[in-house]
């Protein structure tokens, strides 16, 4: 349904596109590039466009059954899109060059290039999204969190099998349990740090992300505290509607976040209100585009 939303915006394009898209949607032969994707499902590839008849059927089902799109959207937005942006932050493969963000974590901060380290980087980013999700209406925020966690563990299970060559179900389960307790501990520690102050947040980051290593460079620790607080600041400025629609991406570590002046904030807010007022007022808006989330908060 995420693809539905995307293609809905480009609804002017005619049948021509469907035939050309067909070639793109075929999964690439190369195993390496295939693995990097979220899943082998064509619906999750960025280039895929839903055939018009499927789109129409989808919209028909949504409007007849009167589906709550805010609930339905949690899967594609939190489970697929938000997980993908958390996952790619620390993603690294042995014989491939590191991405820009991965370079920050593995080269600048000198973190070890391991699977557990990747996991720690991922859950730090997930936690930042959790903080924002808690500020959504309870029922929906909880659902978004659930979808994000579900997807994380489904993906880890797959990666353990494919990439780490863990072929025993029992051992995989043990790892998953371990990862689960790490997630709970990290979320608790980050929550405490977020609420009580930078010192507590720094110790939480040191214990989890840096694995409690003794020869930590405080400059690195400060950089991480700043990084986390900056992302949370950006998240706090997004309205529920924007966040729920997946209009967020993490600020890269080599860019710095400036505080908005009251005028800038006002004009940004006005733009958002105008955008979503137009969507809500549009009588031809597709059922899948509708949302009850507030765009003014």
């Amino acid at each position: 349904l995420y693809s539905t939303n995307n293609s809905a915006q480009k609804s002017d394009s005619t049948k021509e596109t469907t035939s050309t898209e067909k070639g793109k949607s075929v999964a690439p032969e190369d195993v390496r590039t295939k693995r990097r994707e979220l899943s082998s499902s064509k619906y999750e590839s960025a280039s895929y466009q839903l055939p018009k008849w499927k789109e129409a059927l989808g919209e028909f089902v949504i409007s007849t059954l009167n589906l709550d799109m805010d609930k339905v959207r949690a899967g594609p937005i939190a489970g697929s899109y938000y997980y993908s942006i958390c996952k790619e932050q620390g993603l690294q493969y042995e014989d491939e060059p590191l991405s820009k963000t991965a370079k920050f974590f593995y080269e600048d901060l000198k973190l070890p290039k391991t699977f557990s380290q990747w996991y720690q980087i991922t859950i730090l980013h997930e936690w930042m999204l959790f903080v924002r999700m808690r500020a959504m209406p309870f029922k929906y925020g909880k659902n978004y969190q659930q979808k994000l966690v579900d997807r994380t563990f489904a993906d880890i299970e797959k990666r353990l099998y494919d990439e780490m060559n863990v072929h025993s179900g029992r051992i995989t389960d043990q790892y998953l349990k371990d990862f689960n307790s790490q997630l709970r501990g990290a979320v608790f520690a980050y929550d405490e740090g977020f609420f009580s102050g930078d010192a507590a947040l720094a110790s939480a980051i040191w214990r989890n992300l840096f694995g409690g290593k003794k020869n930590i460079d405080m400059v690195h620790l400060e950089a991480m505290v700043r990084y986390v607080r900056a992302q949370l600041y950006v998240l706090s400025k997004l309205s529920d509607r924007e966040f729920a629609m997946g209009e967020f991406k993490f600020v890269p570590p080599d860019e710095s976040v400036e505080i908005l002046t009251p005028e800038q904030e006002k004009s940004l807010k006005e733009k958002v209100v105008a955008k979503y007022e137009a969507v809500d007022a549009n009588p031809n808006a597709l059922p899948s585009e509708k949302s009850k989330f507030s765009y003014t908060n």
Binding site: V131, R132, A135, P137, F138, D198, R229, Y233, S236
Partner: peptide
């Protein structure tokens, strides 16, 4: 924490 103040929106989350 003070520079990137997030306010009650995140400290007292609506949900």
């Amino acid at each position: 924490k003070n520079y990137y103040a997030v306010g009650d929106k995140l400290y007292k989350p609506a949900g």
